[in-house]
Nucleic acid binder design. Structure first.
Lengths: 235, 235
DNA sequence: ACCTGAACACCGTTCAAGT
DNA sequence: ACCTGAACACCGTTCAAGT
């Protein structure tokens, strides 16, 4: 109960980089990207806007740090999940759920894909591919394909959330596809969209995400078999 | 030579939606996203900033219209490319090249994935999948996976370009991966990254993009065969 | 060394006033 | 109906002045 305060952190409300990032995450989780401002953040911390610059370089670095903290927590919570293909599915699904619950995370990963958070994600996926037996020369392409799929879905989801403010998604899709389909009079200008528009509206985001992962995993499996066959033939 | 001017467009410099969008595209192509402002745009058009709002609703709509115009041009220039898997490769590669040459296009597609431009892209890819013989129930997932991969790569590329302003990419990657790898003392914290970091730095973006497309196409092929076998068995 | 908060240099957008 | 351009309500960031 009587914890001895350290020299650097006497009071629990001392302004520190960790506390800034945690508060930023809280604001982002509650109100999305637009809720985080150096003004709202400094107000939440009961300090001046300029004070924050003593602990973070700028807003980009702050967002990257927030994303890194969040991603680390998500990956840790997801656990190991095993080393087979199921482990990759568990990891990617956990990430999808995190992005769904915290859309700002997805948009941040997409906005700056070279940030540490994305590198960590890349590494987590790549390690599992190695354990899965994917040949060395294909691991990089395979990991990239999986990460790109996650980033692509992440961008979709964040935009969908932004849209939700103005109109519900099914309504919007109806609006978006109808003029395209009927344009031109006779033959539909966008035949494929016209045919699958019902699926577009009614589909389950999560199931579709996993279907995409499965397609990529199947492709990776083909790559692995091809490579093994080539090795056996002596090349 | 003596073209009769229409009633609505007497002078060639009349302020019109088409001219606004074309000028916006020119600014974006020259200086990237940050070069397009209602102030720079109105200056380039020799008009007031407020005048633009008589022809476009807001900046989001302007960017969506610019992306749509650019994408339509790209898809038209790419031609049909045939209906087989090679047609999809031709189409996606043309898109990659367009995003490489005009990074603002990629970031705009990523920022608002429900915009007409993305729907058009989705349709173009979906139509080719139909012709390729992908079973009806899998077309949506397959098209989504391909579009997501394109969007994922698009986000990577735009961010890479933004980085290029401060430091070259190889240097940045060295900076980004080194502390991660050496952290912790003995065992590398990011074993996969440490192993493939050379590939990360030296890889060819275009080849990697195509490798990703090939992985997805291989996965789609597996899906197609599985479905055909199921149909033959009677289900 | 850290914090304050007014000030600066931008944005997108609006709107009374003109034509 | 269209255009003008000053004004408004925001941003991220800086910096002299305090403690």
């Amino acid at each position: 109960m009587t914890t001895t305060p350290t020299r650097t952190e006497r009071r629990s409300d001392a302004l520190t980089r960790r506390r800034i990032i945690d508060t930023a995450i809280a604001l982002l989780d509650e109100g999305g990207t637009e809720a985080l401002t150096f003004r709202t953040l400094s107000a939440a911390l009961s300090t001046g806007a300029g004070a924050l610059y003593h602990h973070v370089a700028n807003k980009g670095e702050l967002l990257a740090a927030a994303a890194m903290a969040k991603l680390t927590a998500v990956l840790a919570a997801a656990g190991d999940g095993g080393e087979a293909a199921g482990g990759i599915r568990a990891l990617t699904t956990a990430l999808f759920d995190a992005i769904t619950a915290h859309p700002w995370l997805g948009s941040q990963l997409v906005a700056a894909p070279w940030q540490p958070a994305v590198l960590q994600l890349f590494d987590a996926i790549g390690s599992k591919l190695t354990a899965l037996g994917v040949p060395e020369r294909s691991q990089f392409d395979a990991a990239s394909a999986l990460v790109h799929h996650i980033l692509g879905v992440a961008s979709q989801y964040d935009a969908g959330r932004r849209l939700a403010g103005t109109t519900s998604r099914p309504v919007f899709l109806d609006f978006a596809s109808t003029p395209l389909v009927e344009e031109g009079g006779e033959a539909p200008a966008y035949p494929f969209l016209a045919r699958v528009v019902r699926e577009l509206v009614e589909h389950d985001d999560r199931a579709q995400f996993q279907a995409g992962i499965d397609i990529i995993l199947a492709g990776i499996d083909v790559l692995t078999r091809t490579d093994r066959a080539a090795v056996q033939k002596g090349e």
